[in-house]
Design a protein around this nucleic acid. Structure first.
Length: 570
RNA sequence: GCGCUCGUAGCUCAACGGACUAGAGCAUCUGACUACGGAUCAGAAGGUUGUGGGUUCGAAUCCCGCCGAGCGCACCA
């Protein structure tokens, strides 16, 4: 089913084509009317004609019958369009019949690999993993709805020199005891103890070093111990993901170690392509346009001077694997903004090597830091790292008391508190433009008023409450838009597909957040002005119930795309 | 030093080169509870969009300079 804006474009494009083939109508939502068409002005400039005259000609040519009820040319050459109520109603009916509420699935969307979350084995997840996990999860859900085949990749840090000391520490403790400790999630304690011994005890340090060598050499017993560490960590990650309500699973974990067997080929093939340069003993590629502090060319170090591989090699191998084996048309890296230059370089080298051919693209979906109320990096009061589990638990606790304060009185309290807390945390994160840093503030995000997760959940719960009170099955009549509040709600409802499209286009869930908040506001305004259950007549009542149903579905779908649950009651 | 990102209302944020009033939310002030959840709604007030130029019919948005902030800049990921 085509969206309303697609229908409009179908009528407008031929008119613009007639004056200048390929001209963009520049169709936008408008606060003056329903839509505005701004393309006439740019077109007039190219044609050397008067803008208003061009606008008039467009309107004369375009067949807007049945879709638009009135048009107006305003200002320097804006075309304002008011949608016919019948067209709006038709759109709403189709929306109601569609599980995706009119969001079109693009059959050409292709395979998209989304690389996100990426915690480290044997380390606890902390607030620094929050944004990648939440943003990545939301993008996956949205891309799937819009037709992409999404492959989730949790690129966990499961390899490298720290594993020597971790394995030795595990042996010192005894396997059984170590596993016991790890299974209760005390990964930081484990890591810290290992680190402390490594720094203090030369013998331990020596054992750790040779253990790394055994690990890299593929010694079976060492690998077994390493797998034990990885398995315990993955179980712990799963517990966090499940509490947070993100879709990552064990099978999505494809850590750094997975790419080890592919690294030699990366170097060999770069060498064969003549791209590899030896610089101070390291095997490097110098992609053009990157310089260091001294203004000299900056290398991407593929193999270190000690023969070891760095993360550039792993990232290059991952690009090859994802494009070559998984068939990715797009690879999204949901990774913090500070790594922008690294990814630019990796992508540049991958292109030079032909590993990102025409028709494929790699995108760094960068995001800013989580800051505390003091605008500095978010830390605990003691200055330590905020553990993700602690953060989620605190949120749930705060949500619980907020619900109790407001008289929540059934046995769903625990479950609802968790849903509200996760909704609050996620909405706060997703509603700010990705690129910017955002300030983590419990009171603001957990407020039940304003643009927050709880406000949206509340709007949904109120609608559901109407249906709980409904005793009879309403007659299936048509939709009526007699009241201005009904019409503006309707107008907003049909814009859901456009909001989703804008979100996909920019890979910014904040656009969807804005849409949903506006929708909730339009709804509550309608709700205040238009009685539903006690509507003046049966036809109006049925129509309003239908509008309620569509709003609830839209909120549920939209929140779902953000990874936020929509409880029936709060 | 070079590069990237960014400076919008007291605070947190929107605004895809477009309109006579730069929008929301919070906080503040004023109203509205005998309708479906007042956890709400209606309204008011609040801005030389860091600054100085430029391009344009039209700039928060594009270009240049300056000021300020954060991050990155060779073997950790």
């Amino acid at each position: 089913m085509p969206t309303l804006s697609a229908r409009l474009l179908d009528r407008l494009v031929p008119a613009f084509d007639q004056l200048d083939p390929g001209a963009d109508p520049v169709l936008r939502e408008s606060d003056r009317a329903d839509f505005q068409v701004n393309g006439a002005m740019a077109l007039a400039k190219r044609l050397g004609r008067a803008p208003r005259e061009v606008a008039e000609e467009i309107l004369a040519i375009a067949d807007l019958s049945g879709l638009v009820s009135s048009t107006e040319i305003a200002g320097p050459g804006f075309i304002n369009l008011t949608i016919a109520d019948e067209a709006l109603i038709e759109q709403l009916v189709e929306m109601g019949d569609d599980e995706a509420l009119g969001v079109p699935a693009d059959p050409e969307a292709g395979v998209v690999v989304v690389d996100y979350s990426a915690p480290n084995v044997a380390k606890e997840m902390h607030v620094g993993h929050l944004r990648s996990t939440v943003i990545g999860d939301s993008l996956c859900r949205i891309l799937e709805l819009t037709g992409a085949v999404v492959v989730r990749r949790n690129h966990v840090g499961d390899w490298g020199t720290p594993f020597g000391m971790l394995i030795e520490h595990l042996l010192d403790m005894g396997e059984a005891e170590a596993v016991q400790g790890l299974s209760v999630g005390d990964l930081n304690g484990f890591y810290t103890e290992a680190r402390a011994k490594f720094d203090a005890d030369d013998g331990f340090k020596e054992r750790s070093r040779s253990r790394v060598v055994s690990l890299q050499a593929g010694d079976e017993e060492t690998l077994r111990l390493w797998r034990l560490l990885v398995a315990e960590s993955v179980r712990y990650f799963d517990a966090v993901y499940s509490e947070l309500g993100v879709l990552l699973e064990e099978s999505d974990v494809v850590g750094e170690s997975y790419y080890n067997p592919l690294l030699d080929a990366v170097v060999d093939d770069l060498d064969a392509a003549g791209l590899l340069v030896d610089s101070n003993g390291a095997a490097c590629v110098f992609p053009p346009g990157f310089t260091n502090r001294a203004g000299e060319p900056l290398p991407l170090i593929v193999r270190k001077s000690d023969e070891g591989y760095g993360y550039a090699a792993t990232d290059l191998a991952a690009v090859r694997d994802r494009v070559g084996t998984l068939g990715a048309q797009r690879i999204l890296y949901v990774v913090g903004a500070p790594q922008a230059q690294h990814f630019e370089m990796v992508f540049a080298v991958a292109k030079m090597a032909g590993w990102l051919p025409e028709g494929t693209e790699a995108i760094h979906v960068a995001f800013g830091n989580v800051l505390g109320p003091d605008r500095k990096m978010f830390k605990t009061r003691a200055g330590g790292t905020v553990k993700l589990q602690d953060l989620l638990a605190e949120g749930t606790e705060r949500a619980r008391s907020a619900l109790l304060e407001r008289g929540h009185d059934d046995d769903s309290l625990e479950a609802t508190a968790r849903q509200v807390a996760m909704g609050a945390i996620k909405f706060a994160d997703l509603s700010t433009d990705r690129q910017r840093d955002y300030i983590f503030d419990w009171d603001r995000m957990l407020a039940f008023e304003g643009a927050t997760g709880p406000y949206l959940q509340y709007a949904h719960a109120r609608i559901r409450s109407i249906f709980r009170r409904l005793e009879d099955q309403p007659a299936a009549g048509g939709i009526l838009l007699g009241h201005p509040a009904e019409r503006s709600l309707a107008r907003h409802l049909v814009a859901l597909p456009d909001a989703v499209a804008a979100t996909v286009e920019s890979l910014s869930p904040s656009k969807l957040c804005t849409y949903l908040f506006d929708l909730a506001q339009h709804f509550t305004s309608f709700y205040e002005q238009c009685s539903v259950l006690q509507a003046p007549d049966e036809a109006t009542r049925a129509s309003r119930l239908e509008l309620c149903e569509l709003t609830a579905s839209s909120l549920r779908l939209g929140l779902g795309l953000l990874g936020i649950e929509a409880p029936e009651r709060m």
